[in-house]
Design a protein around this nucleic acid. Structure first.
Lengths: 237, 237
DNA sequence: CTCGTGCAACCGTGATCACGGATCGCAGTT
DNA sequence: AACTGCGATCCGTGATCACGGTTGCACGAG
């Protein structure tokens, strides 16, 4: 405070931005999040603090913190034996999550429809096009589709302009991510073309500033994903 | 597993429930949650891991875990200096939170209206009556009103039958708790009688299984709280 | 072959320590 | 008197260790 005042308000030293202070626990948390959302960790798979720590070349400490956060988010489960696993998903739980996702993410896209700027709209359009291209590509590209699908959705959610809402949605994606993306990748769901259709309807609704249309398009997108996963029959219950 | 099998499926030994295994970090987390929701911790107040650990008679370790979870929830903030404080609330942030609360908690009460059992309805009615009694009592009772208000709301949210939804709402209450309850207690908001009116409308809507009526009553309740806090003028921005 | 027993490896939890950085007070200078 | 420089103190972060408890497996008794 005193130093800032004595430097004056227009010294060049004032224009340098804050350097990012990211702790190791944070980095490991993000690392595990990516693995989870990308479906790289199978449901039921067991995690060991020591093993993860060794794999990442750090001590057990920051891993504990990251895992504790993920457990709090419901993205990991700690059993009575103190064993840590990726939670198993049941059809009933997936349906519950889907209802909540439609409500909350639906609210987010409705807000986005009324509030997003032209620049955001353009970026969303670009991501939509990229997703379509990656998905229609005959060879592979499933990982890319998955990543672009997530980026497209979150670009829209960000346009809602509510950080709290965004973090809630991130929590939901952390829960559905493992099942979802594991299944989608294995079965190449995106080849059905349903996702592109719903995305197109969603982007169109955003463009014409239609909150209810956006909500319905998103609902259809989420429901078609649910239905696909359920029909694969790979889930217990 | 092997032992369970050899015991047979109907042995009395099978009917004993799992004993709760609660870690110290968990207990400290709950402790801090209560302090936060009850508004015992002032916004801007600084927390020290060592101080809290010493006050609770434990090592720094479980406190770290609990605080890390609260920071992840947005209920505490870690600054660039690594200092940990109760986050400061602004009017803008409170409005954002209120919009989200109306959407999510509104969905919860709508679900509760269609799904709650007669027993749950009776328990909700009892909490409503208890809240009214505690609030109308001329002497003090502000702490009781606060506690019963929370219990009433969460009894309804639980009736929605969705654990995920419940934990999301708990996260929201953790964020608004400090400001809210601090203000409400200081200014005795509950003496205005608005809360009782909205609660009565909410319970009535639940009784007649009216989702939209419940949603509107809850919206009015939340909005009146917001308006009250804003008009006290104790918030920056 | 089945089941109980004992041992070894491993796990999460909590305690303790080390380290770099931040904060605050007190001189000492301008 | 106001600012600067310095030192003591405290803080969060990460590493390391100790301790119950669980798991898995081999061995031996029934």
């Amino acid at each position: 405070m005193a130093g800032r005042k004595s430097q004056g308000q227009h010294s060049p030293i004032m224009s340098i931005g804050q350097i990012e202070r990211v702790t190791m626990g944070e980095r490991i948390y993000n690392e595990l999040c990516q693995l989870l959302i990308a479906g790289k960790l199978q449901p039921g798979e067991r995690l060991s603090l020591r093993t993860v720590a060794e794999a990442l070349g750090v001590s057990m400490m920051p891993v504990r913190e990251a895992v504790a956060r993920l457990v709090a988010d419901g993205a990991l489960t700690v059993h009575a034996n103190r064993a840590i696993t990726v939670p198993l998903m049941t059809v009933a739980k997936l349906r519950e999550l889907t209802r909540i996702r439609i409500e909350i993410e639906g609210y987010a896209v409705a807000e986005a429809a009324t509030r997003c700027t032209a620049g955001q709209l353009a970026a969303i359009g670009r991501l939509d096009a990229a997703f379509r291209q990656a998905t229609l590509a005959p060879e592979g590209g499933s990982d890319d589709s998955l990543r672009l699908n997530k980026e497209l959705h979150f670009a829209i959610y960000e346009a809602a302009g509510s950080p709290v809402l965004l973090s809630i949605i991130e929590g939901l994606w952390l829960k559905v991510g493992p099942i979802f993306n594991l299944d989608l990748r294995a079965a190449r769901r995106f080849s059905t073309g349903a996702a592109e259709k719903h995305h197109a309807a969603l982007v169109a609704a955003l463009t014409r500033r239609d909150p209810e249309g956006a909500r319905q398009a998103l609902s259809a997108d989420i429901l078609s994903s649910l239905e696909f996963v359920v029909t694969t029959g790979s889930l217990p219950d």
